[in-house]
Design a protein around this nucleic acid. Sequence first.
DNA 1: CCGACAACTGAAATTGATTATCATGTTCTC
DNA 2: GAGAACATGATAATCAATTTCAGTTGTCGG
Lengths: 177, 177
Amino acid sequence: MILIIIFNSSRTATGHFAPVNRLRTRTANNGAIMNKRIADLNKYLADKGLKITRQREAVAQVFFDTDGHISAEELYTKVSRSYPGVGLTTVYRTLKLLKEAGLAKERRFAEDSQGVFEKEDTARHHDHLICTRCGKIVEFKEPLIEKLQEEVAQRHGFSVEDHKMELYGLCSACRTA
Amino acid sequence: MILIIIFNSSRTATGHFAPVNRLRTRTANNGAIMNKRIADLNKYLADKGLKITRQREAVAQVFFDTDGHISAEELYTKVSRSYPGVGLTTVYRTLKLLKEAGLAKERRFAEDSQGVFEKEDTARHHDHLICTRCGKIVEFKEPLIEKLQEEVAQRHGFSVEDHKMELYGLCSACRTA
DNA sequence: CCGACAACTGAAATTGATTATCATGTTCTC
DNA sequence: GAGAACATGATAATCAATTTCAGTTGTCGG
Ligand SMILES: [Mn+2]
Ligand SMILES: [Mn+2]
Ligand SMILES: [Zn+2]
Ligand SMILES: [Zn+2]
């Protein structure tokens, strides 16, 4: 809340954001606003020699406040409500950074050509059931399947880094309708 | 072989194909050239009130003669060698028909690449291991995983129509390199 | 065999998500 | 505070895939 007010009031007349330095000074003593994920992102950026910017923090914060799956376009719209002036390009770029930092995971369901993103730590060990009629998505865990995947991979000399498993069908509502 | 020769020699001066009617008459008594899959496609087309054309048969025949995964562009190139004049658009349209007819299955491995197709009957019960370094693809079957998938779906009230399972990692060659 | 008419074709234009460009603005170290 | 490197956002480019459209062909009834 406080952060938002400061952000909004610190925009310059030209539509550009105020420098991060100034912002950081004004908010540094409020530990609550800098959550762990933002800290993780900032650490990743620092380690890579990349820079912490207001736009990146804005995009990341809104993303981290979002549950479930969200597309770049949707995130852009959502970010724009709190931080107008952030470009769609930057949303794409920030999502790519979040993936590289291990903080976001991209998914691509069915024929929908648009990728969606979810927080990596919540995404890590679940897969998806997708209703081909109504689009409903159910998340599930099945450790036994994961174990079998490992075994299959090992049998073929592969080491598994990632996997994708999606089950397409009809949900109970759509089946009876 | 015979079919190809007849096809080539039946092209008109304008680059258009000779009518299917004439072709059919000349090849009808050679049962060997009309394989089961082409027959299946023709039945599907007839049932839907769609038309059997030389282009569709050409694309389908080359596709059915191909093992493994092939993209629309690659199929277009391959078809063009035997049947020049068939457009890429028609290759896309025919592949869509083959999917609808249950004769082809589309896959999409690397997120950013184009779709590839394989014959539905050979594709039906295998999944893929994909090396993220060299692109090597290994096909495997794991009935136990399929069984667990069914159980998971049932537990959530879903009926499974299709599934996608891909394991991404490093093949043994790439791991030791 | 003849239309008639709906379906088909291929070139070209379009789409839509994502990425590249580039001139300008910002970050951050010394 | 200066400067080098990095980031931003408007815009253009990309690229697989689809749509459009004017001309062509398959199919069916007669
Ligand atoms: Mn999910
Ligand atoms: Mn395969
Ligand atoms: Zn449903
Ligand atoms: Zn490899």
